[in-house]
């Protein structure tokens, strides 16, 4: 790798591993534009038959929750058991739950 930096933007890559499942985050990469990002994603993440569909999203377009806000965001859920569907028995044979 040359040490010269490029100012290509960062893209987040989402891959659908098979039909019926949703796209999940696979990683990120640099590319000059969306078309090339899609091609780079194909080379980096789906060369071994890992997917049937790829999304690329400019990383700058993603608004993420901050680690500093972890407690107010996620902590209150833990002590309210009635929010969790833990009182049901899951029928046999149900997948992806």
């Amino acid at each position: 790798m040359s040490t010269q930096n490029t100012d290509w933007p960062l893209w987040e890559v989402f891959v659908r591993s098979k039909r019926g499942l949703s796209h999940s985050h696979a990683g990120s990469l640099h590319a000059p534009d969306a078309t090339m990002a899609l091609r780079n994603a194909r080379d980096l993440f789906t060369r071994r038959g890992e997917g049937v569909s790829i999304w690329v999203v400019p990383a700058a377009a993603i608004t993420a929750s901050s680690p500093d806000e972890k407690d107010p965001f996620f902590e209150p859920a833990a002590d309210k058991t009635y929010r969790h569907p833990t009182f049901y028995t899951i029928p046999e044979g149900v997948k992806h739950l």
């Binding site: 590319a31 091609r39 080379d43 980096l44």
Partner: peptide, 9 residues
């Protein structure tokens, strides 16, 4: 290669 992504391609 100029960038890692292109090297892989």
């Amino acid at each position: 290669a100029p960038v890692l992504e292109e090297e892989v391609a």
